[in-house]
Simulated scan of single mutants.
Amino acid sequence: MPTPDRTSLDEIVAAGRALLESEGLAGLTMQAVATRVGVRAPSLYKRVRNRAELVTRVAEATARELGERLDAAATGAPDGPARLMVLARTFRGFAHERPAAFGLLFTPGSDLAIDPDVLRGASASMLAVAAELSGPDHALDAARTLTAWANGFVSMELAGAFRLGGDVERAFEYGVHRLADALATGSP
């Protein structure tokens, strides 16, 4: 009779996500996850091949969560510009709540092998509002522009890089409004 499983892949990923936030990417180790879920490290290899797969699964779970939050936020807004505002605020709120996970998803040059379907799902609301604002021919371009701006802004904010004083909240709102206006004009 085989020994019963003492943990599941969902528990492993949840432990990994919690460790990422509390200990950073360097602290997201197989041993730390095993300790958190109450098994010995070799037991994890029944569910996860190696640390790279663990980090990828944590990133995918994070992308799914972000996508779900964006989808839920976009549902209540009446039109494209309003949806863009809500999406940008939700994106920013997620980054403030889960800064290490945000960094994992949006680190340039990352070698994560995230499933393209997961990325498409996480991007669906942003692509939809981008298409509404700029037209279907420019939806991907507009979504990339919006995401790059929001990522840059939030990354600088989290790093404390806005050092000239002023109201960062006001600057964020100004940027989102200007982007919405620019995209809604329809001219590339």
Rank of each mutant, 00 (worst) to 15 (best):
Pro2Thr: 11
Asp5Ile: 13
Ser8Arg: 09
Val13Thr: 05
Ala18Thr: 12
Leu20Asn: 00
Ser22Trp: 00
Glu23Arg: 08
Thr29Ile: 11
Thr29Ser: 05
Gln31Glu: 14
Thr35His: 12
Arg36Thr: 08
Val37Pro: 03
Val37Arg: 04
Ala41Arg: 14
Ala41Lys: 12
Leu44Ala: 05
Tyr45Ser: 07
Arg47Ala: 14
Val48Arg: 07
Val48Leu: 08
Arg49Gln: 10
Arg49Phe: 01
Arg49Glu: 12
Asn50Gly: 06
Arg57Thr: 05
Ala63Thr: 09
Leu66Gln: 07
Leu70Ala: 04
Thr75Tyr: 04
Gly76Thr: 06
Gly80Val: 03
Arg83Phe: 02
Met85Asp: 13
Met85Glu: 14
Met85Leu: 10
Val86Ala: 06
Ala88Pro: 01
Thr90Tyr: 11
Phe91Glu: 05
Ala95Val: 02
Ala95Arg: 00
His96Ser: 04
Ala101Cys: 00
Leu104Tyr: 01
Leu104Trp: 00
Gly109Ser: 05
Leu112Met: 12
Leu119Val: 15
Leu119Arg: 13
Arg120Asn: 09
Ser123Ala: 11
Ala124His: 03
Ala124Gln: 10
Met126Cys: 09
Ala128Gln: 08
Val129Trp: 03
Val129Glu: 05
Ala130Glu: 02
Glu132Ala: 11
Ser134Val: 00
Gly135Asn: 05
Gly135Thr: 06
Gly135Ile: 10
Pro136Asp: 15
Asp141Pro: 00
Ala142Thr: 14
Leu146Val: 15
Ala148Phe: 11
Trp149Phe: 15
Trp149Tyr: 14
Phe153Arg: 02
Ala159Phe: 06
Gly160Thr: 11
Ala161Pro: 01
Phe162Val: 03
Leu164Arg: 15
Asp167Phe: 02
Arg170Cys: 00
Glu173Gly: 07
Tyr174Glu: 13
Ala184Glu: 01
Thr185Met: 06
Pro188Ile: 12
Pro188Cys: 11
